[in-house]
Design a protein around this nucleic acid. Structure first.
Lengths: 221, 221
DNA sequence: GTCTATATTGTGATAGAC
DNA sequence: GTCTATCACAATATAGAC
């Protein structure tokens, strides 16, 4: 279904990769990624991308059929990084609290990193114009991560280490207990602390505490 | 400091409001708001705005100095609506759980409404280009709302109805426990349920439950 | 202030030499 | 495939009549 977004289909050209230099392809993708994440889709021109990549604009068009396709390819690459950069294999765990803490730190490290936030920014801004891209983004990023978390909770349920009635909802809750308090601040990259800044440690500890109190097996309900 | 963003300063013209028809000003603002929220800043042209407002492009420029200023004025108007649309005066409360539930429903009703999400989308996308605007947006919207919530928690602390050590953090947590599970789905307005859809009732109930378990005064810690 | 018609710049995309 | 030079068009902004 998303064959139009397969990595090979994102570059142009008659033959398989007839003579195109992969180093330039990557340079263009890097420049596009950097600029799109930083300034958004509409504010970046193909000239800027070409200049930042150190090639001519015609070369950009030799590698990517259009600005749209270049954008799609950039998002696609970011999704691969998304899938690889997460998943800390927290399945093996000494005790639940420690595992949750590690997961929360991973959430902060990756989901609140400037690069990730840049992707989210541009995807949310341009989403309406690229519906299939949104689909493949969700399927490559948020969806498998939530699934992994839900499976972690289910395993903990079976072990009696947690008591989570709705693992899907709990996955959302844990993610946003960490992400939420830092989200706007970093999404809008506010330099001066606009409100009383919440430190990462406070946020992570608060999230783990609240999650444990909510889903510890000995909680009364 | 934000005098450049005072409402009077956002329209152009020599005299106070020399002959400008307020109805047209509002029509232009409405059209701009609708289109910017729907399609983003870069994808909307002044011609479209003029057409949707039922005036000529020159008239738009008679009311607003530039596209940037029109955008700023639109955001400013949305901030006033933000401040007015929230604040359900939940200070008077029978019992805490009911008050929290009402607050959570209000969060869902307003913070996840298409209009609000559109503002967030465009602010996050264009934020880097409009730093002062981001500042005034935060000060008019999220900041006072968080403050109100924190004060609510402090009052509940004094009454012994809750035990909230960090009201600021707790405000973030409550907001995102409701907002998070529905956020991406609505921000990217996915029609087909991509993952197992969380119903609003589930989300609100889950948020209140978790918050109460975390901050009920009889909780052991 | 409001309109029609226009000036001007920037940008996505291409032609043609090497 | 890669470059320089260029086209075609769309969009911001304005001139001038009423």
């Amino acid at each position: 279904m998303s064959s139009a977004l397969a990595p090979e289909a994102l570059t142009t050209g008659p033959g398989p990769s007839a003579g195109r230099r992969p180093e330039k392809t990557e340079a263009i993708l890097d420049a596009a990624g950097h600029l799109f994440r930083e300034h958004g889709y509409g504010a970046v021109s193909m000239d800027q991308i070409a200049r930042e990549a150190g090639v001519s604009k015609a070369t950009v068009y030799a590698h990517f059929e259009s600005k749209d396709r270049l954008f799609a390819a950039m998002i696609h690459g970011a999704c691969r990084a998304y899938a690889e950069g997460l998943m800390p294999a927290a399945t093996e765990m000494e005790d639940v609290r420690a595992a949750l803490t590690r997961i929360c730190r991973e959430i902060e490290r990756f989901l609140l990193a400037p690069k990730t936030l840049g992707i989210y920014r541009v995807i949310m801004a341009e989403g309406p114009r690229f519906p299939e891209l949104v689909q493949s983004f969700i399927e490559a990023g948020p969806l498998p991560f939530r699934k992994m978390l839900a499976e972690f909770f289910e395993a903990a349920n079976r072990r009696g280490a947690l008591k989570v009635p709705n693992p899907q909802l709990a996955a959302h809750q844990l993610v946003w207990l960490v992400r939420g308090p830092l989200y706007l601040e970093r999404m809008l990259n506010l330099k001066q602390p606009l409100w009383d800044e919440q430190s990462v440690d406070e946020v992570v500890a608060g999230a783990v505490d609240m999650f444990m109190k909510g889903y510890a097996p000995d909680a009364r309900d």
